[in-house]
Computed example of a mutant assay.
Amino acid sequence: MNAADLVGYIAGFCTTVSFLPQVIQVWKTRSVADISLGMYSLFVSGIVLWLAFGIAIGSWPVIVPNLITLLLAGSVLVMKLRFGIRQAA
């Protein structure tokens, strides 16, 4: 692994792990009232594109963090859609 890949993995780790508190908070409280549907929809779309880009160029430091971020941010988006309907009713 070269230095650039190492920096990529560290950056990816930091940005990916930053979603854990949000996922845990929403899962525990089932409260999504303060979560922006627009922001998470755009963000998840962007992550899908970054993941596609990483796959296209064969860059594991781009693929791995974006795949994990997609799972974490995607789970917040799914919970927003699922729990948000209950809270609106």
Results as ranks from 00 to 15, higher is better:
residue 58 G to A: 07
residue 15 T to N: 08
residue 12 G to H: 07
residue 41 S to K: 07
residue 71 L to N: 05
residue 57 I to D: 10
residue 72 L to R: 11
residue 48 V to A: 15
residue 11 A to C: 13
residue 36 S to P: 06
residue 60 W to K: 09
residue 12 G to C: 02
residue 4 A to I: 15
residue 56 A to E: 04
residue 13 F to T: 08
residue 56 A to Q: 12
residue 85 I to G: 09
residue 64 V to R: 01
residue 45 S to Y: 01
residue 60 W to F: 14
residue 88 A to F: 06
residue 13 F to E: 01
residue 83 F to S: 06
residue 75 S to N: 09
residue 31 S to N: 15
residue 71 L to Y: 07
residue 23 V to R: 00
residue 68 I to K: 05
residue 71 L to F: 14
residue 59 S to N: 11
residue 62 V to T: 14
residue 89 A to G: 11
residue 79 M to Q: 06
residue 52 A to R: 14
residue 79 M to E: 05
residue 82 R to F: 13
residue 30 R to W: 02
residue 43 F to C: 02
residue 88 A to S: 11
residue 17 V to Q: 02
residue 41 S to I: 07
residue 30 R to T: 05
residue 49 L to M: 14
residue 51 L to P: 00
residue 47 I to D: 03
residue 8 G to T: 07
residue 44 V to A: 11
residue 77 L to Y: 06
residue 27 W to F: 12
residue 22 Q to E: 06
residue 12 G to R: 03
residue 70 L to K: 12
residue 74 G to L: 00
residue 88 A to L: 08
residue 77 L to I: 12
residue 57 I to E: 09
residue 56 A to S: 14
residue 24 I to L: 10
residue 87 Q to M: 07
residue 47 I to F: 00
residue 39 M to I: 12
residue 6 L to D: 03
residue 64 V to K: 01
residue 21 P to W: 09
residue 85 I to L: 14
residue 24 I to Q: 07
residue 20 L to A: 06
residue 36 S to E: 02
residue 20 L to H: 00
residue 26 V to H: 07
residue 32 V to E: 04
residue 22 Q to V: 06
residue 5 D to V: 11
residue 3 A to Y: 13
residue 65 P to C: 00
residue 23 V to F: 15
residue 70 L to E: 13
residue 13 F to P: 05
residue 13 F to S: 10
residue 28 K to G: 10
residue 36 S to V: 08
residue 12 G to I: 04
residue 84 G to R: 05
residue 80 K to R: 12
